[in-house]
Simulated scan of single mutants.
Amino acid sequence: MPIISAPHQFNEHDLFVDLRASLGVPLYLKCEGMNFAGSIKQKAAVSMIEAAERAGRLRPDSVLVESSSGNLGVALSLMAASMGYQFLCVTDSRCNLGARRLMEVFGARVHTVTEADPVTGLLGARLDHVRRLLDSDDRYVWLNQYQNPENWGAHHRWTAPAIAESFPDLDVLFVGAGTTGTLMGCARWFKEHRPGVRIVAVDSAGSVSFGGPAAPRWIPGLGSGVRPAMLDEAYVDDVRIVEEVDTVRMCHRLAARGFLFGGSTGTAVAGAAAWLAEHDPEGRLTAVTLSPDLGERYLDTVYQTNWVQDIYGNAVLDDIRHPAEHAVKVPAMSA
């Protein structure tokens, strides 16, 4: 039985959902929301703060600052509360109310950027705000998840080996792309240790990460308005782009079977299901994707009828009410 003295000391590494029963898709979903931060971002938060301490960057009066769309902000808030640091999160209007409230409960301050940069969007505006804070006070310490090697290093150290241990016959791994920390950590590990595993990045439509045109995005987590500094496409075998309406549909399909996951999970599963339908129609491959978080923080957005209707229109609500008509058809796995 686990006994801990700090919240970040617990993380469930080995929980997978076989989605064949729920979706008819030959895909295993690694659930990363089973920790006190509620998301995969706890790993990066632990890794980045501990590295900053080892490097002597943190003093007793230091104020951690980070740009986050939600989950990393919650994880850093939890860590700061546990370790006695102050924390300021710079987010934007897409951040879920539940995530902002959680950060504040842990004692963090939250600055919300509402005006997008005309070129780099809301993310660029957030980063500009962080730089202004750094210039204003030398107590601020920016962990910089976008360039910090401890971001991808956490997944190279923990996430990828856990997947490999559970699935020694893995053929393809689907990883959602945000900062690309999870993607690059997993991709680097598998290219080093299991180069036969195919790495497929899943990104949101409207993200510029893989060269697509910028467009408004409403669901936080995956995607970026600025090309991720950590991204090295040499480690990525394929890319699947997912429209947000398909993210919403997939989240509701999973909820209808009792699995309440976050928006990034809906994107990852929708992208993986579409890729498998195209590349593995007989269901012979062993495939895994990751669920970064659970769905409670999305009750006011992805799972709220008025929000979905206002953003995506009535047609999506019809799809949700009649999911069988819009399901991705993937044959059962061969015996």
Rank of each mutant, 00 (worst) to 15 (best):
P228Y: 14
S82E: 13
L285W: 01
N11Y: 00
D128C: 01
G153H: 04
L19F: 04
P161T: 14
N35V: 07
L122S: 05
M1S: 15
N144V: 12
M83T: 04
P118F: 11
C251R: 00
A55I: 10
C251K: 03
G212R: 09
C89K: 03
K191M: 11
D92E: 09
S166E: 01
D135G: 15
D18H: 10
T301L: 03
P60E: 00
A154D: 11
N314Q: 14
R20N: 09
F36S: 06
R100W: 06
L173T: 08
D310V: 06
V208I: 11
A160P: 02
R94P: 02
T289W: 02
E244W: 07
S5P: 02
W158H: 09
R217C: 10
E66S: 12
V141Y: 11
D171L: 12
V17E: 00
F87N: 03
G56M: 10
Q304M: 02
S77W: 13
R131K: 15
S291V: 10
G98A: 15
G181K: 11
G33S: 03
Y235L: 11
L123H: 10
D246L: 08
N151H: 07
A277K: 11
G263I: 10
G84W: 05
L78A: 14
Q147F: 01
E50L: 13
T159C: 13
S136I: 05
V200Q: 08
E244P: 13
L127T: 09
D92Y: 02
Y140V: 02
N11E: 01
E32S: 05
A154T: 13
L64E: 13
Q9N: 03
G196S: 05
D128I: 07
G70Q: 09
H322P: 07
R188M: 08
M79P: 03
H279P: 01
L317D: 01
L254D: 07
D238R: 12
T267R: 04
I199N: 01
Y298L: 08
D280A: 00
D169R: 13
S77Y: 11
P26A: 08
P161D: 15
G24R: 02
W275G: 05
M333I: 10
V74Q: 04
N148P: 01
T265V: 10
R94T: 15
A80W: 09
R249Q: 15
L72H: 02
A160L: 05
S204Q: 14
Y85V: 05
R139C: 02
L285A: 06
P216M: 05
E192H: 01
D238P: 02
N11C: 00
S5G: 14
G206K: 00
T159M: 11
V17W: 06
R227F: 03
V105I: 15
G262N: 08
M184E: 12
D300R: 13
M250N: 00
K43G: 04
R188L: 06
Y140F: 15
L27G: 03
A201T: 09
L173G: 04
V269S: 09
W142S: 03
A116P: 14
V105H: 06
M333C: 13
